[in-house]
Design a protein around this nucleic acid. Structure first.
Lengths: 161, 161
DNA sequence: GAAATATAAATCGCGCGCGATTTAATCGCA
DNA sequence: TGCGATTAAATCGCGCGCGATTTATATTTC
């Protein structure tokens, strides 16, 4: 008996096909917790949290993004990003400066120190990959399904608003 | 062009098969955010957060669990659960009392009010299922893969400690 | 049975996420 | 040109997650 039951018992307030959905949602939730537990001690050595690491990688891909553009890539908003970016700035990993042409916007760039720490952390994903212990094809399928699911959920949330 | 790119550009510090893992981790992370955005406004009407909702369902399945037992089911620990349970107690949804036989342990039970709100919330999973917009078989497979992934990650984290 | 050890829960500090609001800059339009 | 509407970021409050520590109870060992 390696596995715990993942589905509620009979007589539960959760029944039918929705029951499965509850389990899927919980599976996403608990997998996220598990990822974080693996990531945290590794990223700690570089002085980064996982969301900070995501921001740094997004900046590596495209320098000088605005807060909103970063948010579109990471599905976050300024209420989360602004304090996070200030911490990255304090740590010396990024710079924040108002756009000259439109002073409402703030453009974020990696510093040399930021690029350096990203290079030092380039071994991190490999360690996570080993911890995941899954064949590449399965991971690829998983990524695709999760992206579809996310897009569906976001679309549903948006149309209710 | 419906989709954004999910893989880092060339020259990125994330390369090789690990790149895929990074993408999977981000997919789990962003799907979790998306789930939360759908869940939150729905659960708000019942005065519950998603972790609180999970705790309530776990208690429906087995009354009188200790804090540790709840933690094993939900992959959480007392540092997260204790304050959460106190909030549920304040809301009148659960009771917390020391085990007579072993006073180190605290046993949690649903109140009548707690069971009532769970029944009222029985429509919630169906709404999430609709928002997910995926066939049941695909969700079932996804759940299984994510559970395996989570177990692998937890095993890897445990053996490092 | 007293001291050392182990265990369960609680406490503390910090960084997210995010709904809601505020502040500041730009745009639209007469 | 002026002034209301829009947009971008920042701010605020609250509830997680979690590493680390503390407190209280139980168990082990001598």
């Amino acid at each position: 008996m390696r596995k715990k039951r993942e589905t509620p018992a009979e007589g539960s307030p959760v029944t039918g096909p929705a029951l499965l959905d509850h389990a899927v949602c919980f599976a996403v939730y608990s997998a996220g917790l598990a990822f974080n537990r693996v990531y945290k001690p590794i990223l700690d050595r570089f002085g980064l949290t996982y969301p900070q690491y995501l921001v740094m990688i997004a900046l590596w891909q495209a320098e000088g993004q605005t807060v909103s553009e970063l948010g579109e890539h990471l599905f976050l908003e300024s209420n989360t990003l602004t304090p996070l970016l200030k911490r990255l700035e304090t740590a010396g990993f990024v710079t924040r400066r108002r756009d000259k042409a439109d002073e409402r916007q703030v453009r974020i760039s990696l510093t040399a120190k930021g690029r350096k720490v990203l290079e030092e952390a380039s071994c991190v994903p490999q360690q996570i990959f080993e911890a995941a212990g899954m064949p590449v094809e399965k991971l690829a399928a998983l990524r695709g399904t999760l992206a579809d699911l996310r897009d569906n959920l976001r679309a549903a949330a948006a149309e209710k608003a």
